[in-house]
Design a protein around this nucleic acid. Sequence first.
DNA 1: CGGGTATTTGACGACTGTCAACGCCAGTGG
DNA 2: CCACTGGCGTTGACAGTCGTCAAATACCCG
Lengths: 230, 230
Amino acid sequence: MALFEPVDHEQLEWTQKARSGQLVVPSRRHLYREGESSNDAYTLFDGWVILYRSLANGKAQILRFALPGDFLALHPDQNGPRTHSAQAVTESVVCAFPRTELVDMLHNHPKIAMRLNWIHTRDMTMCQEHLLGIGRKSAEERIAFLLMELFHRMRLRGRANGNQIVFPITQEHIADAVGLTVVHTNRILRQLRDALLIDCARQRLTILDEKRLGEVAHFRIDMVEMRHLI
Amino acid sequence: MALFEPVDHEQLEWTQKARSGQLVVPSRRHLYREGESSNDAYTLFDGWVILYRSLANGKAQILRFALPGDFLALHPDQNGPRTHSAQAVTESVVCAFPRTELVDMLHNHPKIAMRLNWIHTRDMTMCQEHLLGIGRKSAEERIAFLLMELFHRMRLRGRANGNQIVFPITQEHIADAVGLTVVHTNRILRQLRDALLIDCARQRLTILDEKRLGEVAHFRIDMVEMRHLI
DNA sequence: CGGGTATTTGACGACTGTCAACGCCAGTGG
DNA sequence: CCACTGGCGTTGACAGTCGTCAAATACCCG
């Protein structure tokens, strides 16, 4: 998750130095937008941030929900244009550091290079899982899967309260993530609630029947575990 | 594209050593399958290879068409299970090398580490573009975009003959890549042919009207160029 | 309490999927 | 040389998931 966790002390100190500081991003504020030139990368310390791309006609596709500990803004070229936008859903705290430092780190700290490599491949696998879902699953499967995924990612961060998590995103966010309209997303959510699989209200999501929800979603927990426990 | 191109001589020699050899993969043969343990990574020298994931119900989603020069099999964990399958569409030539060597390279050759980092972010951007397409574009846009993308990727490899490329994939491949059924893919292709935008027959794709096809696809060439010209 | 945002529903339409059949073409074997 | 066969491409009719439009309701924050 975090890029700078299990490295030796000298490296850790070094990375501290590289950090150009923490940054509080208010809800709804953009951290960066597609097309801007990209000077910094970020670690998300607290909050929910959506990474998305949008089309000329206004439609948007959420690429990823970034949760605390996640790493943002790894664009192809340093100072090249950002390839997607990042917007805070809740007030968020990020730690920014210049991308030039990243280059230095790759040079001088092979362990960080390896760790970054691992993060990349893991993110790629998640993106591909997402692709599979949008391309080949039904609306119900996609939404159930997303809920399961978010629940477990929060739980792995120690941020679940039993079978409940704080859930600050709107149905429009869900719709934009799974490639459906808000209206249809709403219908599916109602369906899942009527079936007593979930309950969501006032910024909270409760998984009422994890087993059945997992079946609906064709969710395999080992995928999430694999990805997040080093 | 290729991982080992613009590095200095010493490093290049070293990578030669690391290669455990070339490998000819017959058409339709799998290079590896999802779930197998992953010992090697590959560079594709010649041929078309599809990377895909599939569901229990048999539906498949093509994640990427790998073209000559592309790099395959960068899975999260060395010796961990492969997260997708790779199958040769045409007879293909790949160069395999053990993933342990990759780890060594990250340690000892920072330029390769940086290059690998760049490849990862670029692949990620392509995957996200793909996600945007499947999630938010119409059938016609998706297919037109795919054709444009494949044409330009081939052209950048010097493998286009004017406005024509060899095109060894079936309509089922296209369908599995853009998240549609074969039947509907066929209808859209016919529509594009009737509009005299493309012509495809016998393993060849011809772009008859690149400008209009690009408009239908909302295709921006700078995306492809950015990705492939270092 | 008021105004804006988010959720919810219904009716309707359309894009895409399903089912089924046929044609085309290349390779194979008699 | 010509049937035979299997894979792929092509079409039509029909069904269904999902999108669009519109309006009402609920919720949050100042």
